[in-house]
Design a protein around this nucleic acid. Structure first.
Lengths: 253, 253
DNA sequence: TGGTTCTGTCCATAATATGGACAAGAACGC
DNA sequence: GCGTTCTTGTCCATATTATGGACAGAACCA
């Protein structure tokens, strides 16, 4: 069902775009795109420069790095603004943020990536703000990614993790480690990372499923490690799990 | 300098995407994409369906129409939110909206299209709300498009109008009419349409240029025709022209 | 019924995208 | 200075890939 052919070039261009998106404003050097896509350099070079001519990609004057261009948000305006999920999750995020006090993230899956789509800053004076709205990471390197993988059939999760293999080393992890964390999350009922992407932080993530059982998103709390001892981890997880079920109801109806 | 080759398929896919973007939420039937792009149906069909598999395009269950998909706004998140222009134009839009009382639009050029990027509703009880943020039209069919064409070298404007020829009939206009309106706008110093896209409305647009003389955007007032007699047209045009110069300063520095 | 839209599929063919090979620039060490 | 290793950019013969004419089914209307 999947493999419709006759458009290799288009698929490749999109793969390049997704890598560039992960680089956000700063962009990505050509060599890195070549490495992570597995395409040859002439091919990536050609694709990227055609996309520049078309306004879909921009190149930073100083650094020479490539980034998502102006025309992408322009195309995006064709869609009505806030997504169903964002609307459904809003009250839960508000409640959970008030109850917990640490930074909350809402993260969706897009292809083989996680994408942060909302963030709420809590009242506690020390907040972990590492991840911004729009941040994109290979599924598996963040606790949100682990949670989302844990919520899908093991085989599918393994496939995605394998596809991301090349990109893991940049985050100092690997396929085996990620699969271990996913298994642990399945046992626990939520995703957890003792060592967050930032030194000294800890994250807890619950998954949110669509009515058909597919994971739609993850809700994450990140805090300095000392704020999330075993006791509080339990409390926070319970709040997240409760709100996740509420969001599932909201997107289900 | 322009014609880098070896990526016909990618360029075609983007042309298709831009047409789909013009259809907004409702989308566009395949046949219309075929007509306006000038590609063959098998080609468009193949492109569109690959884009669906990739999540870039969606198809409406009921109507079978094709529309911009979820993944486009997701890619757009890679760019920092509000554009330079939007920030620079904000105070001017606020002032002009308060002074005039009718609906104000900020429209940019993107390729051969105009794209509405901001709208301010005025205090007067009858407002022309035909155009929404995200609305996309071939350059030339709206007063904003005419203004933008008037602000560029005549030769370039003619090229764009010619490229849009196929799309004009859907708006009940043609190349000759558009070029006439552009010439009139050049003489006047601003774009004007006695017959707006909606019956009984009238629009006035000023252009905003970047420091290098390229038109960057247009600022438009739309109102029911009776609100914009010759005297008031003059007043409104003066306000728009003044604010346009202020925005040009803001994006120039 | 035939006529007119629309969408979808096949496959031989030509044109297109590919990638190996080469080159040149930049940054670093010594 | 000169080698080493990193990067980006370009060429072009080649085979893989995208193309579009032709065919077909579905929906709608008279």
């Amino acid at each position: 069902m999947e493999p419709r052919q006759g458009a290799q070039a288009i698929r490749r261009a999109l793969a390049v775009l997704r890598i560039l998106a992960a680089g956000r404003e700063d962009g990505v050097p050509l060599a890195e795109v070549v490495r992570t896509t597995g395409l040859t350099r002439p091919t990536v070079h050609r694709i990227v420069h055609v996309l520049i001519e078309e306004g879909i990609v921009e190149r930073h004057q100083r650094t020479g790095r490539y980034a998502i261009g102006n025309q992408v948000p322009e195309l995006a305006l064709a869609r009505p603004r806030p997504s169903r999920l964002l609307i459904a999750a809003n009250p839960s995020l508000q409640r959970a943020s008030a109850a917990i006090g640490d930074t909350l993230f809402l993260t969706v899956r897009t292809g083989n990536d996680t994408l942060c789509v909302d963030r709420r800053i809590g009242v506690y004076p020390i907040q972990v703000l590492s991840i911004e709205v729009g941040a994109r990471r290979p599924l598996g390197v963040s606790s949100a990614g682990v949670a989302i993988l844990a919520a899908m059939p093991a085989q599918e999760a393994r496939k995605i993790v394998a596809a991301n293999e090349k990109r893991f080393e940049a985050y100092r992890t690997d396929v085996a480690t990620v699969l271990g964390e996913v298994a642990a999350a399945r046992r626990l009922g939520y995703g957890m990372r003792e060592i967050g992407l930032i030194q000294g932080t800890k994250s807890i993530s619950t998954w949110i499923k669509t009515p058909d059982g597919q994971p739609a998103a993850a809700m994450t709390v990140s805090a300095v490690r000392t704020r999330l001892g075993p006791r509080r981890e339990q409390e926070v997880a319970e709040i997240l799990l409760r709100e996740a079920r509420i969001i599932e109801q909201a997107i289900g109806g």
